[in-house]
């Protein structure tokens, strides 16, 4: 998306930076404060799992569907997890229809990284219910950005994790999925959330709103598991980061994560 082209936000950029000099944000929040968070699990009926996550005015819907597919060659006994992300043109005037761009691919891969690294989904259990022809259960997590007011990553990670929690594994008959059937909850090993910080004129802002994102020089996303590990990291944008700043933000993420885990 060409956020650079959003002229109103460009004008607001100076205002965002000017306020920050006094340690203030445009919406009055503390630098490490989330907007209001809500998560609605079971938002859809046809998907085997779903959740709508809202952070402030940002909305991301996650749908989970199961399919039988070929396992990875070096992991034949494990189920497969895939995360995709769609920036719906409904969500922002800067989003265009078409194949996923680098921003939506990056977002999906960062969310995927956390879920995969922490083995949030028990892939061994998932692979145990294979079909006679060697296929295994695959979990497709599709993230639909429905309204973009900043911090899509944390909102998407929250929606993905909540949708996994909501997911019911379908029954198999002769290696085929029986749609609408229920063989119990998807087996999860850990919960994962992310905290994303935007570097605006040298200050790191947690959960940036849209105008703060436009004013940002760079971004850091840290994923953590509910048993206290860092399980995903991604620096994005041109701004560099020092070791001390990075470790400080990783500690801040550990501290903040409880607030997010409470919603899933």
């Amino acid at each position: 998306m060409d956020m650079d082209k959003m002229i109103l936000e460009q004008v607001k950029e100076e205002y965002v930076k000017e306020l920050l000099k006094a340690g203030k944000r445009t919406d009055g929040r503390a630098l490490d404060q989330y907007r209001e968070i809500s998560v609605t699990k079971g938002y859809l009926r046809n998907a085997e799992g779903s959740a709508l996550a809202c952070i402030g005015a940002t909305k991301v819907l996650a749908g989970v569907k199961f399919d039988m597919l070929e396992p990875f060659a070096d992991r034949p006994a494990e189920g497969v997890v895939m995360v995709n992300c769609e920036f719906s043109p409904a969500a922002h005037p800067g989003f265009n229809p078409g194949p996923p761009d680098e921003n939506s691919i990056e977002l999906a891969r960062v969310v995927d990284r956390g879920i995969r690294s922490a083995e949030a989904v028990d892939v061994a259990a998932l692979g145990a219910t294979g079909s006679p022809d060697g296929k295994v259960l695959g979990v497709f997590i599709d993230l639909y950005v429905l309204d973009h007011s900043g911090n899509l990553t944390d909102c998407a990670a929250l929606a993905a994790m909540a949708a996994l929690k909501d997911a019911k594994v379908p029954q198999l008959k002769a290696g085929k999925i029986v749609r609408g059937s229920d063989a119990g909850r998807l087996s999860l090993r850990r919960n994962v959330v992310t905290c994303t910080f935007e570097n605006v004129a040298g200050s790191y802002l947690l959960d940036a709103n849209f105008e703060e994102e436009v004013a940002s020089d760079g971004r850091l996303t840290i994923g953590v598991s509910d048993d206290g590990f860092v399980c995903a990291g991604q620096k994005s944008g041109a701004a560099s980061i020092t070791k001390d700043a990075l470790l400080g933000l990783a500690r801040a993420t550990m501290k903040k994560s409880g607030e997010l885990f409470a919603h899933i």
Partner: peptide
Amino acid sequence: FSVRTGEMLLFQMDGMLTIEELSTGID
């Protein structure tokens, strides 16, 4: 890294690390 300033220009991470391991890894 920019070795001259010590700043990181690329940081990506997957897998499971403690914050101490993250620190050791960067060093």
